[in-house]
C-alpha cells in the first residue's frame, strides 16, 4: 500500500482486517516483536503532537523497528524554507515508511507523490486524520461490539475537527448508523462532508446546538476540542471555546452503556470528574491507538 491519506483509501474489509490484527497484536504482543527488524520509520511532524507521534514511535519500537525524524518544523530544514516535496523526498531515501503531520491541508498527498516510501497522513490541518479514525473505530468495535446500527453524536468543533470528518466518512459505510451533529452555528460540519457524505449517501442525520436534548439517544458521544490553532481570529476562538463542557450533571439522561470518546488533547470540554465514569473511553483510545498503528505499519510495509 503506497499511501494512507484519507480513511476512504481503505476499504471496509481492509479496516475490519486492521481491527482484527490490532486485537491479535494486543493479545499476543510477543508474536510481533521482531516483525519490523531493520526497518526504519521517519516521523515528519511539522506541527506539534503528543499522542499521535508517541503512539507511532512506540508502535514501531514494539515491532522491532527504528525511528528517525523531527517533532517540530523549526528543527528541520523547513525553517530554512525547504518545501514539503524536497523534505519528503530526502526522508524517503533514508526510511522505509513515512508518517507525516502538517498544518496545511493536502500536504501529505503532495508528499505521497514525491516519496519513494509509503506515506501515512498523521493529520493535515483541519482536513483528515485517518489513523485517529482507525483508533476510534477500533475502540468503538472493542467497546460496543459492532460498528453498525449505532447513534453517534459529534459535539463541539465540527468545522475544523479533522477527526470528526474522517470518522463520519468511515462510519458512513456501515449500515444503520445515525449521526447527531452538535455544534454552534460557526463550527458546523463543512459542506464537503455534510453534502458530500451524509446527503449524498442518503444517511440519517440531525443538527442541533443543544447537547442535553439529544443525550439520551446516543450510543457514542464523540467530544472535540475547539482548536485555537485553526482560528485566524483570537476573538472568535475565545467566544466559542467553551461552547460545550461535559459534566456529570449533563450525563444524567445518557444510556448506561453509552461510550464517551475524545481524540485528545482536551482543554476543558470534558470535566475531569468524568474520567472515572465507566463510560469514559478516551484513555482506552490512547492505548488502542498504538495497536491499530502497529497493524497499519505492518500492512503498509507488506508484512504479515
Amino acid at each position: 500500500m503506497e499511501k494512507l491519506i484519507d480513511i476512504l483509501d481503505l476499504s471496509v474489509p481492509e479496516i475490519n482486517g486492521l481491527i482484527e490484527k490490532a486485537g491479535d497484536i494486543m493479545a499476543h504482543p510477543d508474536k510481533y516483536r521482531e516483525k519490523c527488524r531493520y526497518k526504519k520509520m521517519a516521523t515528519l511532524f511539522f506541527e506539534p503532537s503528543t499522542r499521535t507521534r508517541l503512539s507511532f514511535e512506540s508502535a514501531m519500537y514494539d515491532l522491532g523497528g527504528q525511528v528517525l525524524g523531527f517533532s517540530d518544523a523549526q528543527s528541520s530544514s523547513v525553517s530554512k524554507g525547504e518545501s514539503v516535496s524536497d523534505t519528503v523526498r530526502t526522508a524517503s531515501i533514508y526510511s522505509d515508511i513515512i508518517v507525516m503531520r502538517h498544518p496545511k491541508e493536502g500536504a501529505p498527498l503532495v508528499a505521497s507523490y514525491k516519496s519513494e516510501a509509503p506515506v501515512i497522513n498523521a493529520g493535515d490541518g483541519g482536513h483528515n486524520h485517518p489513523t485517529q479514525t482507525l483508533t476510534d473505530l477500533f475502540t468503538i468495535q472493542s467497546e460496543k461490539g459492532r460498528l453498525d446500527n449505532l447513534t453517534v453524536g459529534f459535539c463541539g468543533d465540527l468545522k475544523f475537527g479533522r477527526t470528526v470528518h474522517s470518522l463520519i466518512s468511515a462510519l458512513s459505510r456501515y449500515r444503520g448508523v445515525k449521526f447527531v451533529l452538535i455544534s454552534p452555528d460557526e463550527l458546523k460540519l463543512p459542506s464537503y462532508i455534510k453534502d458530500g457524505v451524509l446527503v449524498k449517501n442518503n444517511l440519517e442525520f440531525t443538527e442541533t446546538k443543544d447537547l442535553e436534548s439529544v443525550m439520551e439517544s446516543l450510543d457514542v458521544l464523540y467530544m472535540t476540542r475547539v482548536q485555537r490553532e485553526r482560528f485566524f481570529n483570537e476573538e472568535d476562538y475565545l467566544r466559542l471555546k467553551d461552547s460545550y463542557i461535559l459534566t456529570p450533571d449533563k450525563l444524567k439522561t445518557a444510556k448506561s452503556d453509552m461510550i464517551i470518546l475524545h481524540p485528545l488533547p482536551r482543554v476543558n470540554e470534558i470535566h475531569v470528574s468524568i474520567d472515572d465514569d465507566p463510560r469514559a473511553c478516551y484513555f482506552k483510545q490512547v492505548r488502542n491507538g498504538k495497536y491499530i498503528r502497529m497493524a497499519l505499519i505492518l500492512k503498509m510495509l507488506g508484512i504479515d
Binding site: S83, V84, S85, H102, P103, K104, E105, G106, A107, L109, V110, D124, G125, G126, H127, Y192, G196, F232
Partner: peptide
C-alpha cells in the same frame, strides 16, 4: 489559505469533478 497550494511552490492546482449534475469541482 489552509491548502498546501497556498505555500508550496511548483505543485499544480488540481480540481476534480465531484458532481457532474451540479458542475461541482473540489
Amino acid at each position: 489559505p489552509r491548502c498546501i497550494t497556498s505555500t508550496e511552490n511548483g505543485i499544480p492546482h488540481v480540481f476534480k469533478l465531484c458532481d457532474a449534475g451540479k458542475k461541482l469541482y473540489r
